[in-house]
Design a protein around this nucleic acid. Structure first.
Lengths: 206, 206
DNA sequence: AGTGACCGACTGACCGGTCGGTCAATTGGA
DNA sequence: TCCAATTGACCGACCGGTCAGTCGGTCACT
């Protein structure tokens, strides 16, 4: 029997190979045989590690979420300075990861689609709800901090702004996916300037 | 031979039936036989009106885009008053259409997925690029108008803000799709207050 | 000699698309 | 006016390709 860690390594290898192929061809068009070839193993071996194509796909999803969260956490942890600066830096960091994400981004769309219609939609939906919730949490903490420091206006609707910002970053990447000429980093910069100004400046009368 | 308009009617009937089924089951799991049943016709008849499953799906996409654009156009045309008010009203109107869209929203995700991996991905991608571009156009015109009236600050990066807002609305609906407790209208209101404040208020020193 | 990781040829369920046939509506000749 | 011929919209049983998942066997290592 090969060692357990060896088994784990191979499992990870398969997951990454599968991610490549799913990203390239989409869930429906991907053949298990292709994944096996990409991973350099036999098709039958896949079934030693995963129960089914859907099971493998969901595992890829979990892997992807974990990797993305790790990336976000790193960029948060490294930040210091004013709330405005940290918000700006978070935005930049997320948009910068676009370049290296680009060829994997189609996976995100496959995941969305799976959450709408696959057999496992409930699991996907639940995971997305969780993921968005966690991310909103991070951002709202940052904003709350800004208010407590007296940097942002106290009447700001924290949860709404956090939800919208998370969505905005997501959606800018989506637009970049559709349009090669669209620069998400620049767009995020221009927009964040306005948002931070809006958070900071005393509102005029309605 | 049945009249041409009769033929058109039936075609429309099929498109709407197909939209129902695609929304319910997703592209991959939908059987042509199900669509035929939903439309109350025979499977063979589908092929009198559409070349293939993909062809029918793309037609549903075009139908959906047209319907959405029509809705947006109506809400724009009806607007008057200050740029701030019009921006707020546009946001509200889009978020309000959520309620009636809800059971069709999964279609949007199927379309995204198709743009990533179906045989027709180029057509889908192109259509999305176009659609987002048109929408950005509408919003940036509104913002530019606000600047010209002296209502918004002149140094605002119009295109970036327009792109981000379009994306934000999209992404709020996405979050609402994942989370039944999420209220996109309220979130959009809270956020737009900040954005409009940011567009209006004189920026402090950097 | 025993164990278990690995393999890929094979199977059968599945489903998009086809095609020969039915029938209602229309035409036109007597 | 009536009926035969013609048309084409409509249908669903069937076909053939596809592919996830299986299983019997091999091989490397102990």
């Amino acid at each position: 029997m090969i060692s357990l860690s060896r088994k784990e390594e191979k499992r990870a290898l398969i997951i990454e190979a599968a991610a490549q192929v799913f990203a390239r061809r989409g869930f429906a068009s991907t053949l298990m045989a292709e994944i096996a070839i990409e991973a350099g193993i036999g098709k039958g071996t896949l079934y030693e590690y995963f129960d089914s194509k859907e099971d493998l796909f969901f595992t890829v999803f979990e892997w992807f979420v974990k990797a993305t969260e790790a990336k976000a956490q790193v960029s948060i942890a490294a930040l210091g300075g004013s709330a405005s600066h940290r918000l700006q830096a978070l935005s930049d960091s997320l948009m910068n990861s676009w370049a290296e994400m680009k060829d994997m981004y189609s996976l995100v769309m496959e995941f969305w689609s799976a959450s709408a219609s696959s057999q496992m939609r409930q699991r996907f939906k639940q995971a997305f709800r969780q993921g968005y919730g966690d991310f909103r949490q991070i951002v709202s903490t940052l904003i709350r901090d800004g208010i407590e420091r007296g940097e942002f206006q106290p009447q700001v609707d924290i949860e709404s702004v956090a939800a919208a910002l998370v969505g905005t970053w997501d959606a800018l990447l989506l637009q970049a996916w559709f349009d090669d000429d669209f620069n998400p980093l620049a767009a995020a910069r221009g927009f964040m300037t306005v948002v931070i100004n809006g958070l900071t400046a005393k509102p005029r009368k309605l």
